[in-house]
């Protein structure tokens, strides 16, 4: 039993080791190259500095990536999250005109949930490939956001709303607490209800799970619904941080970041096991990477390029054929 326990620990460690290692390298790089990256100042009782910045700016991504992890565990994908973020942000700020803060937030969350349910319906009931199904909302979503904002960039001065994304609580950005809460809720859902088991079982083998009595459709629906809801949450934080909603550019390219975070976190694109902790680390890594690129003075345009390469690299590492090729090559060189 002891050996088993340790081997299990080794495996779980193994999964989270990659993102941690990547992060360590990145931070080491920053330590040498970017002066002041690790400097944290206290101004007005708030913490400031690059690291806090990473955490603060990273919250929408963390939240979104957690939702994405659930979907990817089902061998699915949701590339509409960036657009849902834009819709939710637009909705919230639009509703702030003439409605109370809570109504605005609620409306925003509800529209995110609806978007998620829509995706879930296309995937689980109509059986459309997740990629194509969510592609509809990826492009239509920005149109919907445009309709809400009437083609303008909406701004708000609502102090309560701005607090969500900009405010500080006990020295840390308030959004960090939201991300933590989301993480804890989903973690509890995974470990304290059967949801995690059903999700992983369905993702790993849909047929077997269905024959064992799991309802795959319900699982698909709820995963996509949660993903939509979390994308909306991210949208609220994002728009609150900027005090504005830009239907065109809010959350642009975020879907790639979210996918990347999940995959770096050790969850396979082929579904099955998913890792929430790894996903969060992955998201923080990506945000750190972005911040590093900015602080290095490299043209920010190259970020997309870097990320595209990282995606392919991570997928290659997960690919059996690639690993086989590597081992084959090694054999050739030794012989």
């Amino acid at each position: 039993m002891a050996s088993l326990a340790s081997s299990v620990r080794r495996v779980t460690k193994y999964k989270i080791v990659w993102p941690l290692l990547a992060m360590a390298i990145l931070y080491l790089f920053n330590l040498i190259v970017v002066p002041g990256f690790f400097k944290i100042e206290v101004i007005d009782g708030h913490l400031y500095g690059s690291l806090v910045d990473v955490l603060n700016r990273g919250t929408p991504l963390i939240i979104m990536a957690i939702g994405m992890a659930l979907v990817i565990a089902l061998e699915g994908i949701d590339i509409s999250v960036g657009s849902v973020l834009a819709i939710a942000g637009s909705m919230a700020i639009f509703m702030l005109e003439g409605h109370s803060l809570w109504v605005a937030i609620l409306a925003s969350l509800v529209i995110g949930l609806l978007c998620g349910l829509w995706n879930g319906m296309l995937v689980s009931i109509l059986g459309i490939q997740p990629m194509v199904a969510t592609l509809i909302l990826l492009t239509v979503g920005r149109g919907i956001a445009q309709l809400i904002t009437n083609g303008q960039i909406l701004t708000t001065t609502n102090k309560g709303y701005e607090f969500i994304g900009k405010g500080y609580f006990l020295g840390l950005p308030f959004a960090v607490y939201i991300a933590a809460a989301v993480f804890i809720i989903i973690y509890l859902l995974k470990t304290k209800t059967a949801f995690g088991l059903f999700l992983e079982a369905t993702g790993a083998n849909r047929k077997s799970s269905e024959y064992a009595g799991v309802k795959p459709r319900a699982i698909f629906m709820s995963a996509y619904a949660i993903c939509g809801l979390l994308a909306a949450t991210a949208g609220i934080i994002y728009s609150s941080n900027l005090s504005s909603a830009d239907a065109n550019n809010a959350g642009l390219w975020y879907e790639l970041d979210a996918i990347l975070a999940v995959v770096i976190g050790g969850t396979s694109m082929r579904g099955g096991r998913f890792y929430l902790g790894g996903t969060v680390i992955g998201a923080i890594f990506i945000q750190s990477l972005t911040t590093t690129i900015y602080s290095l003075g490299v043209p920010p345009e190259s970020i997309l390029l870097v990320k595209a390469f990282v995606v392919i690299l991570v997928c290659l590492i997960q690919s059996d054929a690639f690993r086989q090729m590597l081992t084959f090559k090694r054999k050739v060189t030794t012989s």
Binding site: L197, A201, A204, G213, V214, R273
Partner: peptide
């Protein structure tokens, strides 16, 4: 039948949990 990626425990418990 089996859900290959999961543990024996999870495979056994799956139907009961469902």
């Amino acid at each position: 039948g089996i859900v290959g990626e999961l543990t024996i425990r999870e495979n056994i418990i799956l139907a009961l949990q469902a």
